[in-house]
């Protein structure tokens, strides 16, 4: 950069116009009113009369700046505090309220969902318990039924067995009682054939005695 500054210094010797203008800026205000010099430099944009030195220190412009600053800043402040900021603030508040409301609503719905889930689970476990109970009951009743039927069948069977046994015993007894008779008849027939005669009463007594022996 230092190099280019030196170059500017050199340039000023070759091109007097701009370099003079730079110097005039200080020299002109130094000498106060120098109409020829200022007119030449500032002719294009100069509207205010009195040539000024350093513009920020030019007291003649203070009143205008003061006035317009006061007006514009007062307008800015009033409109900002009355219109602009409340408008934006209300939007932000509204959005915040909306988000909070939505969050609360979501919270509420979540609570409802949780409640529904727990109710469903309770119902499910209830149903499961009921199902257990019903199954147990059914099993019990079926078992009881089976038991009853088996018992009936067994009773029936044992009764029939007993009957059959009784019948067999009777038949046996009958048979046994017939044995004497048959033996007596047979004996009587044998005796009759052998002897030609037979007293049935004697035969029977003899048979009975033989059976006894």
């Amino acid at each position: 950069m230092a190099q280019s500054v030196i170059l500017v210094a050199q340039a000023s010797t070759t091109s007097p116009a701009p370099a003079d203008a730079v110097q005039n800026g200080t020299v002109v205000q130094e000498q106060g009113a120098a109409p020829a010099a200022t007119g030449e430099v500032h002719a294009t944009t100069e509207h205010s009369e009195a040539p000024v030195g350093f513009p920020p220190f030019d007291a003649s412009t203070f009143a205008s700046q003061f006035l317009w600053f006061a007006i514009t800043f007062a307008v800015l402040y009033v409109v900002m505090s009355r219109v602009a900021l409340p408008q934006i603030g209300s939007i932000i508040d509204k959005r915040k309220a909306r988000i909070d409301g939505d969050l609360k609503e979501a919270e509420r719905l979540k609570g409802e969902t949780d409640k529904a889930i727990s109710a469903y689970e309770a119902a499910l476990s209830e149903a499961r318990k009921n199902a257990h109970a019903i199954a147990e009951e059914t099993r019990n009743s079926i078992r009881a039924d089976i038991d009853a039927k088996r018992k009936a069948v067994e009773d029936d069977l044992s009764k029939k067995v007993a009957e059959a046994e009784a019948r067999i015993g009777k038949t046996k007894q009958d048979a046994l009682s017939r044995v004497n008779e048959i033996a007596a008849d047979t004996t009587a027939a044998l005796v009759h054939r052998l002897t030609g005669e037979a007293n049935p009463a004697d035969v029977q007594a003899a048979v009975a005695q033989a059976v006894k022996e």
Partner: peptide, 8 residues
């Protein structure tokens, strides 16, 4: 000149 821009 650099201060011309501040002229009112």
């Amino acid at each position: 000149e650099p201060i011309h821009q501040f002229r009112i």
